[in-house]
Design a protein around this nucleic acid. Structure first.
Lengths: 215, 215
DNA sequence: GTCTATATAGGGATAGAC
DNA sequence: GTCTATCCCTATATAGAC
């Protein structure tokens, strides 16, 4: 395909630090929108969805960007690093949603509002969620290595709540089902709902979620 | 990609068919339960779920079985062949369910009975479905190569119906959601419902599905 | 920041002995 | 049916030039 020549190749200097070279500073800086670093992620995101993480080679990513494999290593220390960066994108998105998660008991009402929040995020960041869904094995492998960083994954928290013995089995099935409703429409239906506006789809799904959780 | 040289259909192993050089049992026979061929699939199934198809090496499979990588090639011509054999297991299971799929119009009632059928199959063949869910990229790649064999996949048929313009958007969302309910409880909830009997889970899910599709 | 060239590892697959 | 040994290829990753 044609390369996305965005005209503005970023300002000089690897601010924040190009992946783990010998002794580079950490890269916790805010990501600049059109930077090469970000463009790499955009391309990788598409390929990881289409061919899977393992099925995608660095050469493919580089070629789509118009340069060679080796150049990627200036921006990311490893292939895993690219996956991790994409994971962090989702992590940032999900942080807001997790804030409303108190440590207290979960009611069907709080669950509904949680699912509503996540639904909004999924509609806005569809590809990011899709990539995660289709590369769970690779992501788990990644997590095993970096067992630092608080693993308050959305997925993990969800599963915890679904296993909460304080909630009746009936309700837990409904909770899981309501999430599955959203998930299947957005990520498993192929292009069956492609022509539908996100707004309309969102409304229909919110209503569905509500009905599933209704007593 | 696999190598381009040499013959593609390596005549290895006890599969019948053209070119099988040894006098071995044909492949279209009923699979013998405890046979090495079946044990290979059992081990591969677990590993493909845990580490993904690409993340699993033939060496790993062989080691779990107590012999070496090369021995696998007596039973299967390639790694893809193993995946395909697992896919066929599911194909066989799904055939019954697809029988009730007429070419006529789909009502919510027929959809419900279809989901009920699939639910039963999923409860009985949980790992097989889970493997498919977690290796969609690899399976799609496989399908591209073998563009023979009628691909009336369950997934494909489902998506077709969900895109049917003769059905209202509202109903199609409900249809997808009902499937997602089943899916999420069985495959996305981790071990949250591990302690629950399949019967009880089945009943709760059938009721949920019914409620989602109810007018 | 990107290139060429290269090191290195691991995987799938084959040949032929037993 | 399984083994050892080997081939070939592709992939990640590194070194150093420009």
């Amino acid at each position: 395909m044609t390369r996305a020549t965005a005209a503005k190749d970023g300002p000089a200097g690897p601010r924040g630090g190009p992946g783990g070279r010998k002794a580079e500073p950490a890269q916790d800086q805010p990501p600049e929108a059109g930077s090469t670093r970000e463009r790499i992620l955009d391309v990788a995101l598409d390929l990881f969805i289409e061919k899977g993480f393992d099925g995608t080679s660095l050469r493919e990513i580089a070629e789509k960007l118009g340069f060679t494999k080796a150049a990627l290593y200036y921006h990311y220390a490893s292939k895993d690093d690219i996956l991790m960066a994409l994971h962090m994108r989702l992590h940032d998105v999900g942080r807001d949603g997790l804030k409303q998660l108190t440590d207290g008991p979960v009611s069907l009402a709080t669950w509904e509002s949680l699912v509503d929040t996540v639904l909004g995020q999924m509609l806005a960041q569809r590809k990011l969620y899709l990539m995660h869904e289709r590369n769970q094995a690779a992501l788990e492998k990644l997590h095993r290595k970096d067992h630092d960083a608080e693993h308050e994954d959305l997925q993990q928290r969800f599963r915890q709540m679904l296993a909460d013995p304080a909630i009746s089995l009936h309700d837990r099935v409904r909770m899981a089902s309501s999430f599955g409703a959203v998930f299947s429409v957005l990520f498993m239906a192929g292009d069956a709902f492609e022509g539908t506006s996100t707004q309309e789809l969102g409304e229909l799904l919110r209503q569905t979620v509500h009905d599933i959780l209704a007593p």
